[in-house]
Design a protein around this nucleic acid. Structure first.
Length: 209
DNA sequence: GTTCTAGAAC
DNA sequence: GTTCTAGAAC
């Protein structure tokens, strides 16, 4: 039919269309964990208090994140009323990690874990790292990555809980922690130090048994 | 947090 | 010449 021609819906690209009016607006990168919390497809475990996912950019063979379901931005927001929650997150982290390690037949450092928090996190939702101690992963790329997991920038979950019970809050020396990220690259299992990340990563292979 | 890449380091 | 790191990202 000739009358149906030339629909008036032809789209013209213009500045107004670039205004982000659609509802599928992407979150800022720092909200990635809040998004993950609501994404059932990435859940390894969830209960009334917390959720466990795999880190999207794992820095070791097994690298999990345990997050509270309640929105707590970071350790600065945590007080002694949160002690039971943090204890629960640690218990859950251990259980899930050991279950995965058994399932994957992990041995040696691949089955040894540390549980803790970064002193200065980048993502805006409290998250406890569960990380196997092999540190063999393509996503481990920078000095900051390395030092954030192998220096005292990594706050052991049990120390955080003790600190909370003793002092009712977590205090972080930000300047001191930032400096730790610039430390020389030292192996976490022996005294050797390395000039570059590739040399360190090559060395990490020698600790596999 | 990651990606990208300029230029430092070798 | 290549490898590697460090800082911007509007």
């Amino acid at each position: 039919m000739a009358s149906s021609m030339s629909p008036t819906t032809t789209k013209r690209k213009g500045p107004l269309e670039n205004n982000n009016q659609n509802k599928s607006k992407k979150s800022h990168w720092s909200a990635a964990l809040s998004d993950a919390l609501d994404d059932e497809s990435v859940r390894l475990y969830r209960d009334d208090l917390c959720t466990v996912i795999r880190d999207k950019f794992p820095k070791a063979k097994i690298h999990l994140l345990v997050m509270p379901n309640e929105h707590i931005t970071d350790l600065k927001c945590v007080n002694d009323t949160h002690v039971p929650l943090l204890k629960h997150m640690l218990k859950v982290g251990k259980e899930v990690a050991e279950k995965i390690a058994a399932k994957e037949n992990a041995t040696g450092s691949f089955a040894q874990f540390r549980y803790g928090y970064h002193a200065i996190p980048s993502l805006a939702l409290l998250h406890m790292h569960v990380i196997s101690q092999d540190f063999i992963s393509p996503s481990l790329k920078t000095k900051k990555h390395w030092n954030s997991f192998t220096t005292s920038y990594f706050l052991d979950a049990s120390d955080v809980i003790d600190d909370l019970q003793a002092n009712h809050a977590i205090r972080v020396d930000v300047a001191r922690m930032r400096k730790l990220l610039d430390n020389e690259l030292q192996c976490h299992e022996c005294p050797h130090t390395f000039p570059t990340i590739p040399k360190l990563k090559q060395h990490l292979m020698t600790h596999i048994y």
